[in-house]
Design a protein around this nucleic acid. Structure first.
Length: 648
RNA sequence: GCUGAAAUAACUCAGUUGGUAGAGUACCUCACUCGUAAUGAGGAAGUCGUGGGUUCAAGUCCCAUUUUCAGCUCCA
């Protein structure tokens, strides 16, 4: 007797060893139909796995992440099989499941066109309809390599050779005439992959390195039911409606001009209003936190960057004015970062421990010559402005100040409403492969990273580790946010730097009269304002909270005779710093309401005979609906409070 | 930077094997002075991204280039 402990805690007994598939069949036909893979003692396994001893036994369906991955992985094999049927010369690379589907990389003579993708889909339909069983088998590494070489599958050979050293047999899955090097797990047959869609065909480097050949990657998704696929495709469409790059242009927040250039957006008045509101708020809050505001140059001679190390590490990414190689002439470069400029504030005179911590803040515009393919809306640009800051510290102040930086960033992100969806990333160097990317010694790196790890653990920060993602001068805590397409970017970063202070000869006189080297934290409060605006557009689908809205209140007169009173209200609200306009067009009220709604106005005031007579306003709030009439004083009080509270 | 797709009025789009550049919305004017998501009539608006080429003739075909999008790579 073999005892299986099911997920609900119940025990199921089987007489002798059997495959997971057989066992599930015994539990129920419905469950068997839905099963994608199993978890045996918490480990994801193929349905073909033979169970021969007592274990925890959990059936994973498409509803689970593991089930989805298995399902999508089998779907990727169906894709590859269809491609091999239609294009026998196509070479297979890899085809894993990803967050919302799967892809397969092929080496083709020409990338697939949209029409070809449609034909491939039709072939996949056939394979699904055929309900081909998948079989698992293994080969010795030598036999596997030989077989793959005979098939001309050069990429599979490369993968196989890497596995060969482990001394394990090589695992394959076969479905009909098609077989693929694969660790699994997989579905039992191709039949359940009923609803799928090939989404795009794009270039992708073999093994993710631009030194390798560019292959053709087909992205796709698949579901057990057609309705689920439709729902997913609808969700993708809906996400596009929030895309800041579309919505931000529609709402006249920014634009681009082809003869100005890539990555150089024009922030239009409404977008500028939002960014200005954010910047003033950040500067004011930072001042209360002891930050000293600085204004430093946008460019410097190459000598500055040579000292900092940026000249050696990032010359390609800088906008250089002059010939960088002509040492006989002055050569300037626009600043790609603020650090060495702000350090000069500390270096301005001799410093003592009494000056520390010195917290420097600046709304700082930076210039980075990104590769042409990297630009994206307001998220990745060549000129941008960040809520920059550097803290010069005594070593014993590092932990507390780092904590304050994190709390400050969390306050800012929380207030604008982005914090809940943020994730934390501890970006470390790659000790195995320091190349020339990192400066400093292994001891310095270990020290800085262990200090940061301790701080993060003490604060209970739930982070992921990113190896080889550090700055050249130190480790980073990156706060990440996903855009509407699921692509992740850094919104805020806090970095510990133990190298640059030495390069610039920064030191302070300690209590005992000796000179000491300070620690430095590089950090942002709200990151890059362009990027933050982009993420706010997507977060709110353009319907900004009252305090951020470029136009906060729109007054809608019913007829021309109400205009005088409308102007009175406008003047009163403007007196309190509220951004208000009057829609005095000769249109009907319904039309103006519709217009204001589409402009995503937070507050609309309708004013007609009744309001003029009663000295009231009729208020319609985007957030709270129709609020009926109130006096202008009541309205003012409410708006001022909501703005001050930064109500979302 | 690499692979692919796209670019026609402010916006969304149509434009036949190459033969006079179109619609809806928005905008402007006039009339209507109206009570919570579209009043009516009229008008103006495009070097078809840019530069070359083929042709009697190019929005349409060819080449180059710029910008935008998707993805890869990169992101101090």
């Amino acid at each position: 007797m073999i005892k299986l402990t099911l997920k609900d805690g119940s025990i199921r007994e089987i007489e002798s060893a059997a495959s997971a598939a057989e066992i599930i069949k015994g539990i129920g036909a419905g469950l068997y139909k839905a099963a994608c893979c199993v978890k045996i003692n918490g480990e994801v396994k193929d349905l073909r796995t033979v169970i021969d001893s007592d274990c925890d036994f959990e059936v994973m369906t498409f509803d689970s992440i593991e089930g989805k991955k298995t399902f999508w992985h089998t779907a990727s094999h169906i894709l590859a099989q269809a491609v091999k049927r239609l294009y026998p010369n196509a070479k297979l690379a890899i085809g894993p499941a990803i967050d919302n589907g799967f892809y397969y990389d092929f080496d083709l003579e020409k990338p697939f066109t949209a029409e070809e993708l449609t034909k491939i889909e039709a072939e996949m339909k056939k394979i699904v309809k055929e309900g081909i069983p998948l079989e698992s088998y293994t080969m010795s590494p030598a036999d596997a390599i030989k077989a793959l070489e005979e098939q001309g599958e050069i990429y599979k050979v490369e993968l196989c050779k890497e596995h060969a050293d482990k001394g394990e047999p090589i695992s394959f899955y076969k479905q009909g005439e098609f077989s693929d090097l694969c660790a699994g797990p997989h579905l039992m047959t191709t039949a359940p992959v009923k609803a799928f869609k090939l989404l795009s065909c794009t270039g992708a480097y073999w093994r993710g390195s631009e030194k390798n050949k560019m292959l053709s990657r087909v992205y796709a998704t698949a579901f057990p039911k057609a309705s689920q696929l439709e729902e997913h495709l609808k969700a993708l469409e809906d996400a596009k409606m929030r895309d800041h790059n579309k919505l931000g242009r529609d709402l006249e927040l920014f634009t681009t001009v082809d003869y100005i250039g890539q990555g150089l957006p024009i922030i239009l008045p409404k977008g500028a209003r939002i960014i200005q509101t954010l910047q003033r708020w950040v500067e004011d809050v930072e001042e209360k936190h002891g930050y000293l505001l600085t204004k430093t140059p946008f460019m410097a001679k190459r000598e500055l960057y040579k000292i900092s190390g940026h000249w050696d590490h990032y010359l390609d990414g800088m906008f250089v004015l002059g010939d960088p190689n002509d040492e006989t002439k002055e050569c300037f470069a626009l600043r790609p970062m603020t650090c060495p400029f702000q350090y000069q504030v500390f270096l301005n005179r001799q410093r003592s421990y009494r000056d520390l911590p010195m917290r420097l803040g600046e709304t700082s515009t930076l210039f980075r010559n990104e590769d042409s393919g990297e630009m994206h809306g307001l998220i990745r640009v060549r000129q941008f402005t960040i809520s920059e800051g550097h803290l010069v510290l005594r070593p014993e102040q590092l932990e507390e100040e780092f904590k304050d930086c994190l709390e400050l960033a969390k306050y800012f992100l929380g207030t604008v409403g982005l914090l809940d969806e943020c994730t934390f990333r501890f970006s470390q160097w790659d000790p195995a492969n320091p190349k020339n990317k990192y400066e400093g010694t292994a001891e310095q790196w270990d020290h800085a990273q262990s200090v940061m790890a301790k701080i993060l653990d003490d604060l209970g920060v739930d982070y992921e580790i990113g190896i080889d993602e550090a700055a050249f001068y130190g480790p980073k805590l990156d706060i990440q946010y996903k855009n509407v397409y699921g692509k992740e970017d850094t919104i805020v970063t806090i970095q510990i730097d133990m190298l640059l202070a030495e390069k610039f000869g920064m030191e302070y006189v300690d209590v005992d009269g000796t000179k000491k080297r300070p620690y430095i934290i590089h950090r942002t409060s709200l990151g890059c304002y362009e990027r933050t605006l982009a993420l706010l557009i997507e977060k709110y689908a353009g319907a900004f909270p009252l305090w951020l809205a470029p136009e906060q209140v729109r007054i809608i007169p019913v007829a021309d005779r109400h205009l005088d009173y409308c102007n009175e209200i406008k003047t009163m609200l403007e007196g309190a710093g509220i951004r208000v306009t009057i829609d005095d067009r000769a249109e009907k009220v319904g039309y103006k309401i519709r217009s204001a709604t589409m402009d995503k106005l937070p507050v609309m005031l309708t004013i007609g005979d009744k309001e003029v007579e009663e000295k009231t306003v009729s208020v319609r709030s985007r957030r709270e609906g129709d609020l009926g009439s109130m006096t202008s004083a009541q309205l003012l009080e409410k708006l001022v409070k909501d703005i001050a509270d930064k109500v979302r």
